[in-house]
């Protein structure tokens, strides 16, 4: 019977000269000694809320990218594209939503100071959080006023592709702002109960700033294309 010669485990030089370590390829044949190096071992990872928020933002970006490409395709070669004048209140709404981002940042700073236990009574984060929610409501009310203005001009969802896309973009964005306000409510409840996590607050702030930036993008699209 022929003798089978087995290969010895391959070794590769480590970064330190003169010291050899086994090649720990994933799923490879070379076992990791129980007391051996624990690759990528670290005691901290991103909080899931942070990762999840990036994932959510990625999904929303993809959705609005799809809507934008729909607008571009629909506009190209269509004989029924009629530009409409944007209601001026949209620009006021833009200021409102940007201000809400500022007030949320102030909220975050004040909560941060409380969490660091420098001063439990410092600032009024609940007040600033409320201000943010108020500005969010004001933004939605402003959008509603814009819809009423278009309606007064006889421009409905089905009137033209421009009005269709206008309502589509603004309504969907307003729904995202509403979702953000539910998030603000959640943060407020957690804040009252003293159970708010820093990761939750960070994720919430990230979302709120994102819908502000999303609005700037949509406003540009509406202004340039519709």
């Amino acid at each position: 019977m022929a003798t089978t010669v087995h290969e010895q485990p391959k070794l590769k030089p480590s970064r330190e000269p003169g010291k050899w370590q086994p090649d720990l390829g994933g799923g490879g044949r070379i076992p990791v000694p129980a007391d051996g190096p624990m690759r990528s071992l670290k005691d901290f990872s991103e909080p899931p809320a942070s990762t999840a928020m990036w994932v959510l933002i990625a999904a929303i970006v993809m959705s609005f990218a799809a809507f934008t490409s729909a607008l571009v395709v629909r506009q190209g070669g269509a004989p029924d594209w009629r530009h409409l004048t944007l209601p001026p209140i949209l620009f006021l709404n833009t200021v409102v939503i940007l201000l809400s981002s500022v007030s949320l940042e102030i909220t975050r700073r004040q909560i941060g100071i409380r969490m660091s236990a420098r001063s439990v009574r410092s600032g009024k984060p609940a007040l600033w959080l409320g201000a943010t929610a108020f500005l969010g409501s004001l933004f939605i009310a402003g959008q509603y006023a814009a819809w009423l203005q278009l309606r007064a001009q006889g421009l409905y969802m089905s009137t033209s592709p421009n009005s269709s896309f206008f309502y589509l973009f603004t309504v969907l964005h307003a729904l995202h702002v509403l979702g953000g306000m539910i998030g603000l409510l959640y943060v407020g409840v957690k804040l009252e109960r003293m159970t708010l996590r820093r990761s939750t607050l960070t994720a919430m702030c990230r979302y709120w700033h994102f819908i502000g930036i999303l609005w700037l993008y949509l406003l540009y699209i509406l202004w340039a294309r519709i």
């Binding site: 809507f67 089905s158 589509l168």
Partner: peptide, 23 residues
Amino acid sequence: LTAFAVLLPGCILLILDHVAGTS
């Protein structure tokens, strides 16, 4: 994540063509 996020807008537009009179 990316695929379903694109089909969802497609379905919304399809429903609007049915119920909201869009084209």
